[in-house]
């Protein structure tokens, strides 16, 4: 009897303990002006894990972002470090700061969005903490069990991490974003990290392609062009159509490799992964690399002049027509409405 009671109590304490000590650090991705939407998804994911959510904001002149972060619902505390070394968000500089925060506050989970920034920082933090990171998490089942795609999305794996600190990047399209208002987090200074490796790399400049169109990752409609577009100027046709439909424009790897468009527009295994309601493939005949990035689209429409193009075999709707004729026509039709 006594034995039973003891076993029961012990389990109870363990259960409580995990909840009480569970705490998650979210590394905020921003541009010193505003938070990137992916950060809200990361915070949303952190809330699913349970426990307190702390947000780490590193940057140069990032006061505005810190303020924005403190208002996000569900964030308990934010750690801010405003320093020149974070200029350009070099992972070499950010990672030690994350480790320093970890050493001071002993988080159980560290979460970052799966964008270029998070993918650069998390592996470094993993190396410094001697911990195996889990990348591209699509679902959180419990505080130590996560779901993630493997083999380029061909299989889904459920992993249970035995690491003391669970490091992960999350796939933003799989988690709902936290509400941007309604929270009041206390602000604290983040501990300074030991910069390792000195100034091996330096931030020189950043060239951004500006666009008023919705972001590829979250767009409801995506129009993408392939090698069939022939050259970069012809992509303007797609932009015109996209503007009328409120769509984002992407490209296949062939189009990016041919230099038609910058590589931030690439959809595919090595590029961005999209899951829109409507996906329009223009001048793409089909490429494995590209298919991996768009297979979760609800409706796939293909426009190609070659009736034998393999993409017609997977598209819900196909249009066999010269794209240089059809796209302007489509634009006209959409505009009329």
């Amino acid at each position: 009897m006594l034995l039973f009671a003891r076993a029961g109590t012990r389990r109870l304490i363990q259960g409580n303990g995990a909840r009480r000590w569970g705490s998650t650090l979210v590394i905020a991705a921003h541009n010193n002006e505003r938070l990137f939407p992916i950060t809200f998804n990361a915070i949303g994911a952190a809330q699913k894990i349970g426990g307190d959510v702390t947000c780490l904001v590193l940057g140069k002149g990032c006061g505005k972002v810190a303020e924005e972060t403190s208002k996000i619902a569900g964030v308990k505390k934010i750690l801010v470090a405003d320093d020149n070394v974070f200029h350009g968000f070099l992972p070499e500089k950010v990672a030690p700061a994350v480790v320093a925060a970890q050493e001071q506050f002993n988080f159980t989970h560290i979460v970052a969005g799966g964008d270029a920034f998070g993918k650069g920082v998390i592996p470094r933090v993993g190396a410094l903490l001697n911990t195996q990171p889990i990348s591209d998490v699509t679902e959180i089942q419990s505080e130590d069990t996560f779901v993630r795609p493997i083999y380029a999305g061909n299989a889904i794996m459920t992993v249970r991490s035995l690491e003391k600190i669970k490091l992960m990047t999350i796939r933003p399209t799989c988690f709902e974003g936290a509400a941007p208002s309604g929270g009041s987090a206390e602000t604290d200074k983040a501990p300074a990290g030991k910069s390792e490796g000195g100034d091996v790399s330096q931030f020189i400049e950043q060239k951004l392609t500006k666009s008023d169109r919705p972001e590829l990752a979250g767009a409801k409609i995506v129009i993408s062009g392939g090698r069939g577009m022939k050259n970069g100027e012809n992509f303007k046709m797609l932009y015109d159509l996209a503007d009328q439909m409120g769509a984002a424009v992407g490209a296949s790897r062939a189009a990016v490799d041919a230099g038609f468009v910058p590589n931030d527009m690439q959809i595919g295994q090595t590029g961005k992964i999209v899951a829109p309601e409507l996906y329009i493939a223009v001048g793409i005949s089909g490429a494995i690399q590209h298919l991996a990035g768009m297979k979760d689209s609800k409706t796939i429409v293909a426009i190609n002049k070659d009736p034998d193009a393999p993409i017609f075999q997977v598209a819900d709707f196909g249009l066999v027509e010269d794209l240089f004729k059809v796209v302007p026509e489509l634009t006209k039709l959409v505009t009329k409405k």
Binding site: T138, E139, P149, N154, R171, T173, C174, A275, G286, A287, I288, L291, A292, K295, D296, I300, P310, Q313, V314
Partner: peptide, 22 residues
């Protein structure tokens, strides 16, 4: 890849009528 994608999409359509599996 074509076969894989066809299979994936038809499976998805039959198992998840209105949402993304992930």
């Amino acid at each position: 890849a074509l076969y894989m994608l066809r299979k994936y999409r038809s499976l998805k359509k039959s198992y998840y009528p209105d949402e993304k599996p992930a």
